[in-house]
């Protein structure tokens, strides 16, 4: 079973169709599967529903798919930094299902874990709970949220071995882990692919069962949304 593909286009072959649901990893521009997003843009697939915490920024990340109008609906918690998103949303061209950040992560995790729904206190008494079943447990009200089972997951990892065991780096792990498990098939792009046996099995974040196809996406030019620094004290 060869999981390594030469290019993103090849790794996505046969997996894309109009109207499909895609779960994408990343938080802001940190740990986004940018090679796979580029390939999805190039494929021209349309009417996508994309579950992703954010929607990229103009011309970066998922912002690219918004610009080409390939996205019909976003399932997200925060979409602040994106002018084109704002324009399409206000014009009624783009549907958005605002989902609290933790609920979104858990919906992806649950979807991949065979859990159809779960009860949470998050959003009770707010618009998020409108039209959803609520139930009392131990004197407190919880709202039923559904797991997300996507047609495809796209994630960005740091290192993978040839079998598809994957490690993330620092806060780039974020939604990549729950997104990876929440899809019927997961395609990963990574910065480095190493021979089997090179990674400590105790340090694998995403076991190979979740990674069906992968590509080497390097070299990356990682973007920073807000560069904040401190000055060195004078010696």
């Amino acid at each position: 079973m060869q999981k390594i593909y030469p290019r993103a286009e090849a790794a996505l072959e046969g997996l894309l169709f109009d109207g499909m649901t895609i779960a994408a990893g990343g938080f802001g521009l940190c740990g986004i599967p940018e090679r796979l997003i580029d390939a999805i843009q190039a494929s021209g697939v349309r009417d996508l529903t994309v579950a992703s915490n954010n929607a990229g920024i103009d011309n970066e990340g998922l912002g690219k798919l918004l610009r080409t109008r390939q996205v019909k609906k976003m399932i997200s918690s925060y979409v602040g930094e994106n002018k084109e998103f704002e324009r399409q949303f206000l014009a009624g061209e783009l549907e958005v299902e605002f989902t609290p950040q933790g609920t979104l992560a858990e919906r992806m995790r649950a979807g991949g874990a065979g859990i159809a729904g779960f009860y949470t206190k998050t959003g009770v008494g707010t618009v998020v709970a409108e039209g959803k079943e609520t139930r009392e447990f131990d004197g407190e009200t919880y709202v039923l949220e559904r797991g997300i089972r996507a047609d495809l997951s796209i994630v960005k990892g740091w290192k993978a071995d040839e079998a598809g065991n994957l490690m993330f780096r620092k806060t780039a792990r974020n939604f990549n882990l729950p997104a990876a498990t929440g899809g019927r098939i997961c395609v990963a792009e990574v910065e480095e692919i190493v021979p089997v046996g090179s990674l400590d099995p105790d340090c694998i974040h995403l076991p190979s069962i979740s990674v069906k196809r992968m590509i080497l996406g390097a070299p990356y030019d990682k973007k920073i949304e807000f560069r904040t620094v401190r000055q060195r004290e004078a010696a």
């Binding site: 206000l90 609290p100 707010t126 998020v128």
Partner: peptide, 11 residues
Amino acid sequence: KMIKGMGGAMD
């Protein structure tokens, strides 16, 4: 006004 989303505040 433009809705940006609740992020993690509700959680």
